[in-house]
Write a protein that binds this DNA or RNA. Structure first.
Lengths: 167, 167
DNA sequence: TTAATTATTTGACTAATATCAAAATATACC
DNA sequence: GGTATATTTTGATATTAGTCAAATAATTAA
């Protein structure tokens, strides 16, 4: 059980996952924060952030074992615990409670994504940013502006202007 | 096992779930199609469709047992099989394979949502519609335009113009 | 079949945001 | 502490898509 996990320490700007490589590990983020981003027309589009106590992986790659389409990069120095897909599968086979835990984790992450999906669409730039300030202020405090802009689905310049207006 | 499920037949435009009511059932859609939508500033925003062999529920409400924020309405006459949350929990306690099935279903639905999320952002109206035509043409064939517009995150008028341009 | 209703298209105009370029500010590094 | 680098802000302009209103077209029901 304990020996299925390995401690990983990496430093700011390091990559945990590179697009094109298959991601065979699930990580538990003990300390620090990081982002998932993909490239679109030469621009980096950050589509999620992770903070302390989050599970982290490139879900598409981890689940399908296809090459990842996204990159995962540290925004701060991090301490993580990694478990391979094989080990996790073994654990789930051995302990049904682990399977249940994983199932519940998926429920949580599904709802999180759905909430973002719904709250993002049909909102103006101002609404998106003030919702972010209200619901996840830690993102604003710990993440550079450029990453937040694409996370909100707006340009960096627009976000800068919105921020100026709101302060 | 078999007796945990009940057959449900409903007709076009009927509601399976109403916003404000807790949704305590998971459905398997055997025949027909339906949509999930919520109200925003007096407009109906359709955010997903389901077709044959899909699992259907208001996930937020079903998982948290909070009142649903969305409505689920039939777009065609449908045949569904329903199972209550309690029955499903019992089944998962009794048969670990069921828990595994549910876990894997969540994986699938998570990936589906993630894909839509990524492919939706930063696309123009034309790109969104042609992606839809290419990847899920059955939606265009079976669903009225008004529902598709909000699904794509654009106005009905814009969708109509896009469609005129593309044909 | 016709009338009533609903869905879709079209037009004119407006608003929001993207883009490109440059300036200002902050941060990291020697 | 000063230079280089990266980040954020600001300005001017272009685009895209939204809105409102009206006209068609398609469905539905009597």
């Amino acid at each position: 059980m304990r020996e299925s996990f390995n401690e990983v320490t990496l430093t700011k700007n390091d990559y945990l996952v590179r697009e094109g490589k298959t991601c065979r590990h699930l990580y538990f983020l003990q300390q620090g924060c990081l982002r998932g981003f993909y490239n679109l027309d030469g621009k980096e589009i950050t589509h999620w952030f992770a903070f302390e106590n989050d599970f982290v992986t490139s879900f598409y790659s981890f689940i399908t074992l296809q090459p990842a389409v996204e990159n995962i990069q540290l925004l701060e120095n991090c301490t993580l615990w990694s478990i391979s897909k094989d080990s996790l599968t073994n654990l789930m086979n051995r302990y049904t409670d682990i399977e249940r835990l994983v199932r519940i984790a998926y429920e949580t992450y599904y709802l999180r994504l759905e909430e973002r999906f719904i709250n993002g669409q049909f909102k103006t730039a101002v609404e998106r940013y003030s919702d972010l300030l209200q619901h996840t202020p830690h993102i604003v405090e710990r993440v550079p502006l450029g990453c937040i802009a694409s996370y909100l689905g707006i340009s960096q310049e627009t976000l800068s202007r919105v921020r100026g207006k709101l302060i």
